[in-house]
Structures are given as structure tokens and as C-alpha cells.
Design a protein around this nucleic acid. Structure first.
Length: 462
DNA sequence: TAGGCCATCTGGTCCT
DNA sequence: AGGACCAGATGGCCTA
């Protein structure tokens, strides 16, 4: 039974040993002979018209991929995607050069490409960018400027028009030519669609690099992720305006209990259920809009996803918990990790604190009002640069290996939780020496135990 | 081996 | 006529 969770498994690339290299070359040579043979068979195995037909229409002019008619009629093939199957099982070597690329996210852009979340989308430049991508099967030809001095060609109409009688073979050839062009366009269109999906995957906080969301998972994830972010913004807006949200989103205790029983799978299943699987508790908003997001929300005893204390506030929306401290110690937690942010003035002489603070790409959180807005990256680095990706990856891996508390523990923690603020000023080292988290004035141990969430640093923009 | 996912082919429809 | 879009069919690959 295949489930998307299987993509969490790390797939090691199949490497060719030195002993296999000569054999690999030999197989490639055989492969070349194979295609030469197919070409000759196609050319001489049919009449002359069929050969012309092959030359005219089979190798589509607007395609960057040379494809024989045999390829076109046979199993779908593509250089990038579904290669021809060659029986090399005895050799243990794949003839498909890009086989490794199947299991990895396709590389769409250069390494220095950075997706700017906050910049308005320039449709024209986007289309230009897409049109110039190398992995499209149909490279866009540069249009020649029209020569206005050149007289327009006149076409005959009506009786003056000479229509040639076409033989059945010619008609077949024309139809086949159209079909091949249509196939090429369709192939190119699907490539564009997949590239758009890949770009979407690149801006979603998902999984380790060697896994890939399916198409439907990507769309569902994006939908729910956007909803979670928008709800977070809305809650913070209400917070800034002094409105305390009275209604949050119900916590699914039954689901939590199931997760507890499932043990280790809880982290992955929770993540998947919240982001990927359509919620069974679908509902409509007051304005008629449809939403189906559900997460670990409304964790507080008062039934709200908002809790205010003398030290600050806690907001829990979707899979995101935002802890804002009046004194500047802020924390953002998702189901896969937490991030702590304090003002450098609170670090004292702690070099590690200072270094870490200077390394991160977020602004300071001086007070309650600007705590969120100032977390917008202060430089122009992309949100999902390599550093942030590694942070999220580590957080996710940590979450994957941890167990959530039993249901009764959750209940107990609920009962024990109150609205008092818990100060915590000690330095916190979580996991390994690499995962160093800043101290939090506000995020207390009991609260952390209640969630039992991994304590890795996570990008605060989640 | 069954099932899921995917790329591709293909014919139909709609629009310019 | 030709291109875009869509959905069904098909076969390959991968995993449990």
C-alpha cells in the first residue's frame, strides 16, 4: 500500500562502482547501436513516402528532444521523465542517464535563484522566465521582427485558389504531422504545469530534500498552508487591535488519541493530516468561503486559541503557535519545531547568544507591537534559502523521531495549565550542540512539555 | 503482485 | 486551421 509517508524514506543514490564503468560504457554503446538500428529499420522498412513522413513530422521541429516515430508510438518516453525500458536487469545497470533525478526534486532554477515572497508577481517576467527554461521540451524561438517594407504575400481565394488533390497517404501524413505537433505541445504544456508545481514545492516547508510531494499533496498542502498563515496574520491583527478572538478551531482530541496510540508515527501523521489530507470536518466560513484546515488549535483550557497573561500572549492558529512576550522574548512553534527570539540586550555576555542572533536573518523584537512585523527578514535572502531549509529539515527530522504524549498526559497537562506566565531565563540547549536555541522568557518548560514538541530551531516565518 | 503515481499519447471540444 | 485545454487510456516505475 503506497502512502505519501513512504516518501520520508531516505533513498540513497545508486552509485556505479569503478568496476562497473567499462560495462556501463559498453551498455551505452549498445544503446546507441540500438537506436541506430531502429532508425534504419524505420527508414528502410517503409516506402519512400513513409520515410519522408518520418522526416517531416515525427521529429517535431519545435521540440528540443529528438524522438523517433517508433518512440512516439511506443510507450511514452521522455528524457526527463519516463524513459524507455531496456532490459538490463541482468547487468544491474540502468540505461536511463537521469534515473536518479526521478526521486529527487527537479532542479528548476540556478542555485542563486531566490523566490521573493513579498515581491508582487510579475506575470510577464514569470512567463519569460518559464519560456527560457532549459528543461522545456519546446524551446521558444526568437521572433524575427517583421519587415514592413516587404509586400505581404497574397493568397488566392475562391475559384482562383488551387487546391491540390491529396492522396490518402498524404492525408495520413498531414494528420500524423498534426498529431505529433499536438503531442509535443501537450507534452510541453504538462512540463510547464509540472514546473509550476515544482516552484510551488520550493516555497512550501515540506520534507527532506530527497522526498517529493505528489501533485495532489502539493496542492492540498499549499491550500492549507496559506490558510494557516492567513489565520496567523488575522489573529495577530486582532491582537494588535485589542480584539481577543473568542472562537478558535477545535482540537481534535480523538485524533490526538489515535496519534498517541500510533506512537512514533504521530509526528508524521499529524503533519500529513493537517496539511495533506482533506479534513473530514469541513465547514464553511460565515462569508460562504470554504475551508478545511484543522490543526492542533485551541489548546488552552478556556477553549480559545488565544490566551493573555501578564507577561504576554499565546496565539495558536493552525499548526502555528506564536508566543509574544511583553519584554521581547518571542517564540514561534509549529508541529515540527520551535524558534526562540529575544533581544540581544538580554544576552548579556553570552557570546553564543550574540553570535546566533547576529547570524539569523530576522530583525529584532523590541516590543510587543513590532514583534511580528520585525520578524520579516531584514535582508533580501529568500525565505527558503539553504540555511532555512536545513533548519526546517532538522526540526522535522527531530519531530519525526519523537513521540507525542499519551492522551491522558495531555489531559493532565490541560488541567494543570493555567494562565500564569512562567519565566524561564536559563539557557536552553536542545538535542545536539548544533541545535542551539535562544532563551525564552516566556516559553516555559511546562508549556513545552504540554506540546512535547521538538526543540529545534525553526524558521520564525512559519 | 497489487496499487499508487507519473508521463505521455490521443481524441474531443472550444476558441481565435 | 491551429492552439489550448481536458479527460481517458496506457505503460513504466516504485513500494509494501
Amino acid at each position: 500500500m503506497y502512502t505519501p509517508l513512504h516518501r520520508f524514506r531516505v533513498r540513497f543514490p545508486k552509485t556505479k562502482s569503478d568496476q562497473q564503468q567499462p560495462l556501463l560504457i559498453f551498455v551505452y554503446i549498445l544503446n546507441s547501436f540500438y537506436y541506430c538500428f531502429r532508425f534504419l529499420a524505420t527508414m528502410f522498412g517503409t516506402d519512400f513516402e513513409e520515410y519522408c513522413d518520418f522526416n517531416d513530422s515525427i521529429c517535431s521541429n519545435d521540440s528540443g528532444i529528438d524522438r523517433s516515430y517508433g518512440d512516439a508510438l511506443a510507450t511514452p518516453t521522455s528524457i526527463n521523465n519516463t524513459p524507455l525500458k531496456h532490459d538490463t536487469s541482468d547487468l544491474g545497470i540502468s540505461l536511463t542517464p537521469n534515473k536518479q533525478a526521478i526521486n529527487v526534486r527537479r532542479k528548476l532554477f540556478d542555485d542563486d535563484y531566490e523566490f521573493q515572497l513579498h515581491e508582487p508577481l510579475d506575470i510577464k517576467s514569470f512567463e519569460d522566465n518559464v519560456n527560457t527554461m532549459d528543461n522545456t521540451s519546446t524551446p521558444i524561438k526568437a521572433k524575427k521582427p517583421k519587415d514592413t517594407t516587404k509586400p505581404k504575400r497574397k493568397y488566392a481565394n475562391g475559384k482562383n485558389r488551387v487546391t491540390r488533390c491529396k492522396s490518402p497517404t498524404q492525408i495520413m501524413r498531414i494528420k500524423r504531422n498534426r498529431r505529433m505537433k499536438a503531442n509535443d505541445r501537450e507534452r510541453n504544456r504538462m512540463h510547464m504545469l509540472n514546473e509550476a508545481l515544482d516552484r510551488l514545492r520550493c516555497v512550501l516547508p515540506t520534507f527532506p530534500e530527497d522526498t517529493k510531494l505528489t501533485k495532489i499533496e502539493t496542492l492540498r498542502f499549499a491550500h492549507n498552508y496559506i490558510f494557516a498563515l492567513s489565520q496567523t496574520l488575522e489573529s495577530l491583527d486582532n491582537l494588535n487591535s485589542g480584539n481577543i478572538p473568542s472562537e478558535g478551531y477545535a482540537l481534535n482530541y480523538e485524533k490526538l488519541q489515535q496519534y498517541s496510540i500510533a506512537g512514533e508515527k504521530i509526528a508524521k501523521d499529524a503533519f500529513r493530516d493537517m496539511f495533506l489530507v482533506p479534513n473530514k470536518c469541513d465547514e464553511y466560513n460565515n462569508d460562504g468561503s470554504y475551508r478545511n484546515f484543522q490543526g492542533f488549535s485551541k489548546p488552552f483550557p478556556n477553549g480559545s486559541n488565544f490566551m493573555q497573561t501578564s507577561e504576554g500572549v499565546l496565539i495558536n492558529v493552525g499548526n502555528v503557535t506564536v508566543s509574544v512576550n511583553n519584554k521581547g522574548g518571542n517564540c514561534i512553534t509549529s508541529t515540527t519545531g520551535s524558534g526562540f527570539f529575544t533581544h540581544p540586550s538580554s544576552f548579556g555576555d553570552d557570546i553564543n547568544h550574540q553570535n546566533f542572533y547576529q547570524e539569523r536573518s530576522f530583525g529584532t523584537c523590541n516590543n510587543f507591537n513590532d514583534s511580528y512585523e520585525s520578524n520579516v527578514p531584514v535582508n533580501n535572502e529568500g525565505y527558503f534559502n539553504q540555511t532555512n531549509y536545513e533548519l526546517f529539515k532538522n526540526a522535522f527530522e527531530t519531530a519525526k523521531n519523537r513521540k507525542y504524549p499519551k492522551a491522558n498526559e495531555l489531559t493532565s497537562n490541560y488541567n494543570n495549565f493555567n494562565n500564569n506566565a512562567y519565566l524561564q531565563t536559563d539557557k536552553q540547549y536542545y538535542g545536539t550542540d548544533v541545535n542551539y536555541s535562544q532563551s525564552s522568557y516566556y516559553y516555559n518548560q511546562r508549556y513545552k512539555d504540554f506540546y512535547n514538541r521538538p526543540s529545534s530551531i525553526l524558521n520564525a516565518q512559519i
